[in-house]
């Protein structure tokens, strides 16, 4: 008998439907990833019982683990389906949507809360305009390299899924946003708006809600040093709180 890949997918057609597990058996080929297995199901949408079913719905784009789209929970861990290689996974491979974001369908969830949080923490440098005003500030290679680590955050949601404080529809902002605040506050121009960003993470759902479980650091597929950002922000927000106290 030729080798098969056993895949169990937690499915539902829409948010109002109760989830159910559906099992698939896909002919094995070397070096497949979870995405290529899902693609195989599209080409032959039959479950393990041989019944024709609706093809599994999921979100994906770059397939190079840099856009963040195809994040799902695979064998219990939130990660990108594109870099989840079948040869490295125990079977049956279980695939389910992330639980901390509103479900859309099958494996797709709605992560717009993350983008709204980026708005809230003002994750940008307010430019005077995009016209030519010459180069930005000079920067040491060390600082550039440190900031680069934080710039790789692809808002995939792994840190949120792994975090005990982050809850569906809860106020907690999530570790990624602290990483982004740190990223902008470290920049010489970004530092000018440091107080605004600190105020945002001192608000409801901000840094004080972090239980310091540090699951985020282990969960981040890009190895972003989120714990460092949280530690530094802890110190910065304390200073900010004192300053506000004395200013008032």
């Amino acid at each position: 008998m030729s080798k098969v890949i056993r895949l169990k997918v937690k499915r539902r057609d829409n948010p109002n439907q109760a989830p159910f597990w559906e099992e698939f058996e896909i002919p094995y080929r070397p070096r497949m990833n979870v995405i290529s297995v899902l693609m195989e199901i599209q080409r032959n949408p039959k479950n393990a019982k041989g019944e024709t079913v609706r093809p599994v719905h999921w979100e994906s784009s770059c397939l190079e683990e840099v856009c963040g789209s195809c994040t799902m929970v695979i064998n219990g861990k939130a990660r990108q389906a594109c870099s989840a290689l079948i040869d490295h996974l125990e079977q049956p491979v279980t695939v389910e949507p992330m639980s901390k974001f509103p479900i859309i369908r099958d494996l797709q969830v709605d992560r717009s809360a993350m983008f709204n949080t980026l708005k809230k923490v003002k994750a940008w440098i307010p430019l005077d305009g995009s016209h030519n005003l010459g180069p930005g500030p000079k920067m040491s290679p060390e600082l550039a390299n440190e900031r680069y680590e934080f710039s790789k955050c692809m808002t995939c949601g792994c840190c949120c899924e792994a975090c005990p404080q982050f809850k569906l529809d809860g106020p907690f902002m999530g570790a990624f946003s602290f990483g982004q605040v740190h990223y902008f506050n470290e920049h010489p121009t970004g530092k000018m708006q440091e107080d605004q960003r600190l105020d945002a993470v001192m608000d409801i759902g901000g840094l004080v809600d972090c239980g310091n479980a540090q699951n985020c650091v282990a969960a981040c597929p890009k190895g972003i040093p989120l714990a460092n950002a949280i530690a530094e922000l802890g110190w910065d927000t304390t200073k900010r709180a004192f300053k506000k106290l004395f200013d008032e």
């Binding site: 180069p135 000079k138 710039s151 970004g190």
Partner: peptide, 22 residues
């Protein structure tokens, strides 16, 4: 060149020379 500078001002973490240039 002005496009690179615009991105520099936006905070893109370009790799740097020892002097701190892009």
């Amino acid at each position: 060149p002005s496009i690179i500078y615009m991105f520099d001002r936006m905070g893109v973490p370009f790799s740097r020379t020892p002097e701190g240039n892009i």
